[in-house]
Each structure stands twice: as C-alpha cells, then as structure tokens.
Design a binder for these strands. Structure first.
Lengths: 118, 118
DNA sequence: TTGATATATTCCCATATAGGAATATGATTA
DNA sequence: TAATCATATTCCTATATGGGAATATATCAA
C-alpha cells in the first residue's frame, strides 16, 4: 500500500505546504483563483488542483461569480486537526520543556558515567 | 516532483493515521516498541519504521533500557501544527457556523431563482 | 459567431511512500 | 560461545502523488 490519498482527510490535505499557503491567503476572505495565482506565484493549473483537493476534504467552498470562481475557507474540516493536536499542548509548555530538559540531562549523565568512579 | 517526504516536517509525519495512533499510545507515557506492537496490533517492523519517521521530525525521543528502547513524546515538534491550525479556530465556532449557513442559503437561493418571475 | 478571459482537466514522469517478508544488529543469559 | 529476546533495516511492489505543458470548458464581450 502506498501513502494515503491527500483527499483522504484534512490531515493529509494540509500536509502540503502550498495548500496551507492557499488557506492562509484565503484567511483574508474570499478570493478568485487568479488572485491566488498572483498572490502565491504559482502556476494556475497547480492552484486549481490544490483547490480541488481542499474542496474534496471540505476545507474550502466555492461560489460562481460570472467567469470567476470565488473560494473561501470552511474551517470546520480543520477542527479534527485542532482537536487532536490540542491534546499534546501541555507537552510544549514552558514547565514541560523544563521537565524534558531534566530528563535529557539524566540520560546524558547515564551515558557519560558508567557507574560513577573512574 | 512527487509528494514531500513524510520526514519533511511534523505535518507530513502525522498525516499518517498509524503514526497518530502511536503518539496517542505514547500519550500515557514511555513505551517499549513491543508494547506498542501489542497495543496497536501492528507488525513490529511497521511500528519501528513509523517510530523512525516520528523520531526524524522530532516528535518522539528514545532511551535505551537494556534490550528495550523506550519511546516517549516530545511534543515540541507538534507546536507548529497547533499554531497554524489555531488561526482557523474561529471558523468552526458556533456563531461562525451560523454565518456559514446563512451564506450557503444565499448561494442556494441565487441558484434556484434565475431572476424571480417565471 | 469570433475572440478573449478565467478555470479545470488530462497526460506524462520522477519520486516517496507503507506494508509484508526476510534478515541484520544488539543486548542478555545459560 | 550459543541461544534468545527486542528492534531496526533491507528488499520488493503497488500506489498516489505534484509539477509542467497542453488542452478543454465556461462565460463574457464585440
């Protein structure tokens, strides 16, 4: 089996940096495809393809406006990511970092000193 | 160019469901590889391979303990994910959902009524 | 209808998997 | 040293890209 499809879920979809860039660009509000092309300096087909992936996992919505297609974020599909990663939030708080540092120091000592004397 | 390496960053590393399972299993504390094998019902080589990816992006740390290798979470590498997704948090709050619903209704109306009469 | 603008899709290809099986490496004990 | 337990690595393969180029589709203007 190969890697899961990028359209499998939001986790896979936003693992691609360009797609996160697109979402960041859309954070300011609705945008047409060509706006995104200009903002990100990517080729138009690439942008359309990324937008399609984002649409398939429900992270963006589209709306037709004349010959343009306006995309906007529908962040509800991002909630599972937030919910998952939130569980680890305490692991990078300052106090936890200090704990980590202590554990790492202990580990180093363990390695460096085979028993203590000589 | 193909997809980015899973070891490129934490986003790619945790896009794989099994790796999130492993992290979830490690949330309870340090575990040996075989513990994870038993807990998750995966093959040992697969677990070792996933652990390697997680290690390469810095999400887990290892410690040698006799013939076992004890893995534990170092969530600091997950912070970028949290930071990124947190910017979209407001987009799934209840009030925002209501706004989305309104916008979607407007869009539907737009489609349904080509002009009004006839 | 013809031309122009805005997007989407298709084709092709190099690349990076993720899992299964077999095997290698390391540490512990008899 | 041999046997064993715990992990890691290698080899193989099917699969899913993501980008570039070319092209198709849709809408608006003349």
């Amino acid at each position: 089996m190969a890697r899961a499809a990028t359209t499998a879920d939001a986790f896979n979809a936003v693992a691609e940096p360009r797609r996160r860039q697109i979402l960041d660009a859309l954070a300011g509000g609705e945008r047409a495809v060509n706006d995104l092309v200009r903002m990100l300096g990517l080729a138009q087909p690439q942008v359309s393809k990324h937008l399609r992936v984002l649409r398939e996992v429900g992270v963006v919505d589209v709306r037709d406006e004349g010959r343009q297609r306006l995309y906007r974020i529908d962040g509800r599909a991002l909630k599972p990511i937030h919910d998952w990663v939130k569980n680890y939030e305490r692991s990078w708080t300052e106090r936890f970092d200090q704990l980590e540092a202590v554990l790492e120091d202990l580990e180093q000592e363990e390695k460096g000193a085979g028993g203590g004397d000589e």
